[in-house]
C-alpha cells in the first residue's frame, strides 16, 4: 500500500547518521533509511532492534545436528547393524564428519531462507525503494508524512546537508 513519505536524499553517509540522530532527537520517527552499502552505527542511531537471525540459525543448527546424529545411529546401529570385524555398530567417532556437515548445511540453508522470508525477498519481487539511485551513490531517509511537521523535518534534513527533499507517495 502506498503512502506519503518525506524523502531526504544525501550523497554521503556521514551526514545521514547526523540527520537521523537529529530527527529522532526532535521526536520524528524514522520510517527507513536506504543506502548503497551498510552504514555502521546506523542501527543504533535509528534505534533498530538487533536481528533475531542468529537465534534462527542456532535452532536450525540444533535441528541439523540432532537429525544427523539420530539418522546415522538409527540406520547403522539399530535398523541394519553390520558386523565389520566385530567392531561396534554404533561407531560414534565415525559419525562426527557427516554430523558436522549436515549441521552446517541445515544452519546455512535455514538461516538464509529465514533472511529472505523476513525481508520479503523472492525471485522477481518488486523492490520497495524510494529512489533508484539508492543502489548506486545516494542515501535516502524516509519519514512518514502523516503526523509529521513537514517544514520542520525538511529544515533538519537540509541543515544536515540533504541535497534534495521531496514528498512522494510511494510503497515502502
Amino acid at each position: 500500500m502506498s503512502q506519503k513519505y518525506i524523502l531526504g536524499i544525501f550523497s554521503d553517509e556521514v551526514p545521514v547518521l547526523d540527520a537521523v540522530r537529529a530527527l529522532r532527537a526532535s521526536g520524528n520517527a524514522i520510517h527507513e533509511v536506504y543506502s548503497p552499502f551498510p552504514i555502521h552505527g546506523l542501527d543504533d542511531a535509528m534505534g533498530l532492534k538487533r536481528s533475531r537471525l542468529p537465534k534462527a540459525a542456532f535452532l536450525f543448527g540444533t535441528a541439523g545436528l540432532s537429525l544427523a546424529v539420530l539418522m546415522q545411529a538409527w540406520m547403522l546401529g539399530f535398523d541394519w547393524p553390520m558386523n565389520i570385524g566385530g567392531k561396534p555398530a554404533l561407531a560414534w567417532p565415525d559419525f562426527v564428519p557427516v554430523s558436522f556437515e549436515i549441521t552446517v548445511l541445515l544452519t546455512a540453508l535455514g538461516m538464509v531462507a529465514t533472511y529472505l522470508y523476513a525481508c520479503g525477498f523472492f525471485p522477481g519481487a518488486t523492490p520497495k525503494q524510494p529512489d533508484l539511485r539508492v543502489t548506486n551513490d545516494k542515501f535516502c531517509i524516509a519519514i512518514k508524512s502523516e503526523g509529521a511537521d513537514q517544514a520542520a523535518v525538511e529544515a533538519v534534513l537540509r541543515q544536515h546537508g540533504a541535497e534534495e527533499v521531496k514528498v512522494e507517495e510511494v510503497e515502502l
Partner: peptide
C-alpha cells in the same frame, strides 16, 4: 536482473540482516 535481485531495496533493516547473515555464514564456512 529484477528477477535475480529478489526485490533488494537497500533499506537499513535489510542491510542489518544482510550483515548478520554474512557474519554467521562466514563463521560456518
Amino acid at each position: 536482473y529484477n528477477a535475480l535481485s529478489f526485490g533488494w531495496n537497500g533499506s537499513a533493516k535489510a542491510w542489518q540482516r544482510f550483515e548478520t547473515v554474512s557474519l554467521i555464514l562466514a563463521g560456518l564456512a
